[in-house]
C-alpha cells in the first residue's frame, strides 16, 4: 500500500469529498484546500507527493497556482478543467502541469493518471541511465539508438530530437507549443504543422498501426503524450 500524500485544491465541497473518498480508498493521504492561496500554503507546509488543482478557483486562476508552484517545486500537478476551459487548460500545461482531466471524469481514470504522474516523478529522480523502454520499443538516449523488437530504426535528426523530448517526459502531456520550442526553437512557434508532419513520419516508422498509435498518443487540440505502458 502506498502512502503518498496528495493535496486537492478545489472549491467545490462535493468534488473534494468524492476525490478524498476515492483516493483514501487507494491508500493516499489526502489534504484539502478550498482556495489557491490556501493550497499554496498547504503545499509548502505539507510537502505532498502530488497536487490536484481545479482550474476554476474563487480567489485566483488555477493557471496562476500552477505557475507559482512551478517557481519552486517540481511535484506532479494534475489539473481538473471544465469543458469550457480549453484555453486555460493548454496554458496550464504550458506553464508546467503534468496532466489534465476534463470534468466529468471517472475515478478509475483519475487514479490511473495519478499513478503515472507519481511514477514519472520517481523515475525522474532516478534518471541517469538514459534508457526508456515501452513494450518492444527501446530508446537509448546515450547511444542514440532506437530499437524495435531488437531491430534498429533509423531516424532523421529532427525525428530523433522529437522522440527524445517525448521520451524524457514519458507520461506527461506535452503541448504543441512546448514541443515546437523544444525541437525547433522559439522562432518556429507558428508552424504547428511542422510538428504534425514529423510526428506523422515518426509514427509511421515506430508504430505498427499509425492510425491507432501505441507509443505516441494524440491529445486532440492539446498536444501529444508518450505512453507509459
Amino acid at each position: 500500500m502506498t502512502s503518498h500524500t496528495v493535496i486537492i485544491i478545489e472549491d467545490e465541497k462535493q468534488t473534494r469529498r468524492f476525490l478524498r473518498l476515492s483516493l483514501e480508498a487507494e491508500g493516499y493521504h489526502v489534504f484539502e484546500a478550498e482556495t489557491g492561496g490556501e493550497g499554496l500554503k498547504a503545499v509548502a507546509s505539507r510537502k505532498p507527493d502530488m497536487v490536484i488543482i481545479d482550474l476554476g478557483l474563487p480567489d485566483m486562476d488555477g493557471v496562476e497556482v500552477v505557475k507559482k508552484l512551478r517557481e519552486w517545486s517540481t511535484i506532479p500537478i494534475i489539473i481538473l478543467s471544465a469543458r469550457s476551459e480549453e484555453k486555460e487548460k493548454i496554458i496550464a500545461l504550458d506553464v508546467g502541469a503534468d496532466d489534465y482531466l476534463t470534468k466529468p471524469f471517472g475515478t478509475g481514470e483519475l487514479l490511473a493518471r495519478i499513478r503515472v504522474a507519481l511514477r514519472r516523478a520517481i523515475s525522474n529522480e532516478q534518471a541517469g541511465n538514459g534508457t526508456f523502454s515501452i513494450a518492444d520499443l527501446t530508446i537509448d538516449l546515450i547511444h542514440r539508438k532506437i530499437t524495435k523488437m531488437g531491430e534498429e530504426i533509423h531516424l532523421t535528426p529532427i525525428e530523433y530530437r522529437l522522440l527524445s523530448v517525448l521520451a524524457q517526459h514519458q507520461g506527461k502531456v506535452l503541448t504543441h507549443s512546448f514541443l515546437l520550442k523544444e525541437v525547433w526553437g522559439p522562432n518556429q512557434m507558428d508552424n504547428a504543422h511542422y510538428l504534425r508532419i514529423y510526428m506523422s513520419q515518426l509514427r509511421h516508422k515506430l508504430e505498427k498501426e499509425p492510425v491507432r498509435p501505441r507509443y505516441i498518443l494524440t491529445e486532440a487540440g492539446v498536444g501529444y503524450r508518450f505512453a507509459v505502458e
Binding site: 468534488t15 469529498r17 480508498a25 469543458r83 469550457s84 466529468p104 471524469f105
Partner: peptide, 17 residues
C-alpha cells in the same frame, strides 16, 4: 454549463467512489 456539470461531476464521482 457550470451549474449542470458541477453536480453531474460530483454525482458521477461519488457513485464511482
Amino acid at each position: 454549463s457550470h451549474d449542470l456539470r458541477t453536480p453531474l461531476t460530483n454525482l458521477a464521482g461519488l457513485s464511482d467512489s
